[in-house]
């Protein structure tokens, strides 16, 4: 039986009917055509599906779409406002903090959630925040640099 759900995503109100066995990630990608969040492992180990719900970073592959009812969701598509990139997006580009780009939307959302709760994180805070986001290209150093720069710690 399908369930009717309502939620906000990137500031927009959405009303949808979803099957119970659909993950939130699948709904976002296939019903809403927001393909930034990726499925890597599908089991909470790689973080490429990370989005922000009610201000908190979560793995959207391990959540049912029906659980999104009443929630406020932000995906990587919601970072840039009126064509202006989020500071994190700017510093990721400037520091070349991505290569293949598959982990990047999840990495950005974990970093965004961190800066939302702690605008001045230590290096350990940053490592904790992105510890669940695997990147197989960069070696993480440039990602740490990009997040520090977005937090205004280096120029």
């Amino acid at each position: 039986m399908k369930h009717e759900i309502s939620f906000t995503i990137n500031g927009e109100k959405v009303h949808l009917e979803v099957e119970p066995n659909k993950t939130l990630l699948k709904m976002i990608r296939e019903d809403l055509n927001l393909t930034g969040a990726k499925e890597g492992c599908g089991a909470g180990e790689c973080g490429s599906c990370t989005i922000i719900i009610d201000g908190k970073a979560v793995n959207s592959c391990m959540m049912l779409a029906v659980e999104a009812d009443g929630k406020d969701i932000m995906t990587v598509e919601g970072l840039a406002k009126s064509g202006v990139l989020d500071p994190l997006q700017d510093t990721f580009i400037k520091n070349a903090a991505l290569q293949c780009g598959y982990c990047t939307p999840g990495m950005l959302m974990s970093a965004k959630a961190l800066l939302m709760r702690n605008p001045n994180p230590s290096e350990d805070d940053i490592k904790e925040a992105i510890g669940g986001n695997l990147c197989r290209c960069t070696g993480y150093k440039v990602i740490l640099d990009a997040i520090k720069e977005a937090a205004g710690q280096i120029n």
Partner: peptide, 9 residues
Amino acid sequence: VGSYQLRNR
């Protein structure tokens, strides 16, 4: 346990 985002759930 797991990662930061996993511990939010």
